[in-house]
Nucleic acid binder design. Sequence first.
DNA 1: TAAATTCCTGACCATTTGGTCAAATTAACG
DNA 2: CGTTAATTTGACCAAATGGTCAGGAATTTA
Lengths: 211, 211
Amino acid sequence: MNPRAGQTKKRTRIQAKNEAKILEAALDIFATFGFRGTTIDQIAQKAEMSKPNLLYYFRRKEDIYISVLERTLDEWLTPLTELDPDGDPIKEIGKYTSLKLQMSQNDPTASRLFANEILHGAPMIEHVLKGSLKDLVDEKAAVIHHWVKSGKLTKVDPYHLIFMIWATTQHYADFKIQMRAILGDEVDQADYFEKAGNTISTVFFEGIKPR
Amino acid sequence: MNPRAGQTKKRTRIQAKNEAKILEAALDIFATFGFRGTTIDQIAQKAEMSKPNLLYYFRRKEDIYISVLERTLDEWLTPLTELDPDGDPIKEIGKYTSLKLQMSQNDPTASRLFANEILHGAPMIEHVLKGSLKDLVDEKAAVIHHWVKSGKLTKVDPYHLIFMIWATTQHYADFKIQMRAILGDEVDQADYFEKAGNTISTVFFEGIKPR
DNA sequence: TAAATTCCTGACCATTTGGTCAAATTAACG
DNA sequence: CGTTAATTTGACCAAATGGTCAGGAATTTA
């Protein structure tokens, strides 16, 4: 019987193993080629199984895509949840930025997957953006707003500050190819992301106008 | 006879009109759905002509895509060329940032088109990135480096500073849907980009650490 | 106006691709 | 071991899609 038909039947070992294998392969392919650019055959090949067998676990291409998105979303939102209202503002924002940059370094596919989805109008995850993401951002924007009010930060709009952090850090995952075209293999060296982090925090904290 | 077969025959009025119509329609569609996500039929419908007629002007889907990319590339690089080595560094970078942000506001499709292309590995424009783009960036990075050396700017890496400017400004085109999900219709108001610009220049110039 | 050229279209084709299905194979279990 | 359920596969289908082509309509040119 099809495993996804019988709601929450007991999950077999084989089932768990194959589903994981599929999702792992799918993340890579979807992140590179987008939803429409990806074929089921590609995923099946990368997951080392036949197409009908893959479709035995996920009935439709869309099901795989949604599963991959959901799986990555949690991980993606975690860093922001850790922004501590009681911590030192500069340190907290520094930690957050650094964490996001690390994610761009260690798991660029996740970033590219979302970039693709959003660029194409976010047809599958719009409700998440308007739901849990918006709630989380609203909450943390309030925290930042409070920091600004109490004079611990320069007067900036909290939302746009968050957008700036997202933009700069995710850029290192999404546009890495452009960076490599300009800087060469340097972008694959170990100290590249360190340099990036230094520049980002210098600009964010001090600004480029000499004091 | 097919207009693209006879190299540089005299361009007809009809030809010029239809080619422009096609490229305009194609920009929109390609920017939204990416190369593989776009069908020739979609472009033909938006350009108000039949598919065979469209293929009379551009023999292959790829030809349209490349034309659209090339057409937008020049416009895209212009602002950076205007960074004046003899101007005031803060003013020059402010002008550049503001110009790029304006482009995200007025022509977000162009930004999305490139984002798509680069996300997918830049298969069509890699040579441009490694060529004229790299040259231009190298040149302007040298200018910024000089500004830093002479103490007119905080000590930052020129390349990463340029990347930061690209990231923050283009984010307002590429991720507008996410912003709208979080902020609502505010993002379509006239003063939204003004607020964005203010935040960006405050952070870039002053930093978020209070003086 | 008549010939030549450009422009346009409906019909058509080959390939790709998402998805199905019956039947074979393997694993699980009493 | 034998029965039952889960897994895998090759063959197949229908729709979508990139692209072709012969010929008709419109436009330019002589």
